[in-house]
Design a protein around this nucleic acid. Sequence first.
DNA 1: CCACCCGCTCCTGTCGACAGTCGACCTGCC
DNA 2: GGCAGGTCGACTGTCGACAGGAGCGGGTGG
Lengths: 219, 219
Amino acid sequence: MSVESLSALDRSTLRERALEALRSAVLSGRYRPGDHLGEVELAGSLGVSRGTVREALRHLQQEGLVTAGNRGMLRVNSLTSTEVHELFRVRAALEGLAVRELVASPRREAAAGALRTALERLSDEDEPAARIEADLAFHLLLCQLSGNSMLVEAWRRLEGRMRVAILNGSDWQAPMMARDRHAPIVDAIERGDADAAVRVVDEHMTAAAQHFAEATESA
Amino acid sequence: MSVESLSALDRSTLRERALEALRSAVLSGRYRPGDHLGEVELAGSLGVSRGTVREALRHLQQEGLVTAGNRGMLRVNSLTSTEVHELFRVRAALEGLAVRELVASPRREAAAGALRTALERLSDEDEPAARIEADLAFHLLLCQLSGNSMLVEAWRRLEGRMRVAILNGSDWQAPMMARDRHAPIVDAIERGDADAAVRVVDEHMTAAAQHFAEATESA
DNA sequence: CCACCCGCTCCTGTCGACAGTCGACCTGCC
DNA sequence: GGCAGGTCGACTGTCGACAGGAGCGGGTGG
C-alpha cells in the first residue's frame, strides 16, 4: 500500500494535492473497500506531514469515500445494494428537477446543444473508466445547465457516493453508459416537454438500478 | 468576538466539542455574515489548539456555514436571495421523493403517527428559535421515515445551508412554521395519496420561498 | 504634498513531537 | 489445555512552533 509522491511543481497547496492524490488513489481501486488508511503511512508515502494527510482524509470522509471505523480509524467505504438503489432514486429526484428547470430556462436550446456535445463525447470513449467519467460529466452538466447552484452542490455530494458504488463492480454500469440511453433525455428537453423529460430521467435511473441489481445478484 | 470555553465533562473528542461550539456560535448569530473567523483567536477562546479549531472550521466549511475568502481566510457565509430560492426548490424535490417513498412504505400509518407528534411539538413551541428547530426536525423526520439513507444524507447537507438562510432574517420564516402549514402534508400521507402529498410539499416550499421574497424585498 | 519603498505584523500553511488508548500477542498459572 | 494478566506496538488525538506571504503604516526622497 503506497501512493506515489507529490510533485512539487504545482502552485496549489499541499493539502489540495494530497487530497487529490488520495481521492484518485481510492477511486482507482488501489485501496480496496474496507482497507485501512493509516495517517502515518500515507504521510510517508505522500511526503507530507500527518496533519496535512489528516485534513485530506477528513475531506474524503465528508465526501463519503472513506468512513470512520473503530477508534476513528478510516477505511475505504463501500455501499450496500440497498444504498445504491436509494442513491439512484435520489439522483432521479435531483436530475428530474434539473431537467424541469432546464426546459423552463430561456436558454433551453443552447443547453440542449451543450448536452449533445457531451453526448458525443460519451459515444467516442471506449475505455470503461473514460466512459464513466463522460457519463458523470453529462449528468453533472445537466445539473449545471439548470442554473440552480444548490442543485449542483447537492449533486456533487452524491457524486462521491456514486463513485463508491461504481467501485463495487465495473460490469453493471456498462449498459447504462451508452449514448442511446441518454439521447432521449436531451430530446425531451429540446422538445420542451418537461413531463416527458422527467419521466425519461426517472426511467433512466430505474434502469440503472435494475442493471445493478441483476449484476450484483448474479455475482 | 469570543466563544465560551469548552467544558471538560464530556467524553467526546475535543474536535467534536469545538465543532459543536463553533457551529452554535455561528448559528446563534454571535458572528455576523462576513465576519472573519481567525484560527488563533478561536483557538484561544475555546482553549484548544489551532489544529483542532482548524479541523472544526473545515467541517463547517463543507457544511456551508463558512466560506473561504482571501488567502484562505474563512468568513461566515451568507446566501443570496437567488440561492435561497434554489434551495427551496431542491428541498421540494428531495422531500417530494421522501413523501412518495413514505406512502409506498408498509409502515405508512406508523410514520404518519410519528409525524403528527412532531407536528404537536411544532405548535407547542413559542420561541422563534425553538420553532425553527421544530420545523427542521419535522422535515428531517419526513426524510428519515422514508427509509432512504441517501436521501437523509442529501437533506442534511442542505440543512446547513438552510440555517444560513435563516440567519439572513428571522421574520420571513415565521409564517411557515405554523402547524397548519404542515398538517396537509401528513394528511395526504395518511390518505396514501402520493400525488397530492408531493403537490402539497411543493406548494409548501413555494410558499416559503415567496414569504422570503416578500420579506427581503421590503427590507 | 505626493509617490514609492521598507519594515512590521497578522494570518494561514505545514511540520514534528508527545500522550492516551485500544488491540494483539505472549506468558504464566490453574 | 484454557484463561487471566501483563506487556508491546500501532494508531489517532492534540499541541506548540516555524516559515512564508499579503496587507498596512510610517518614513523618505522627489
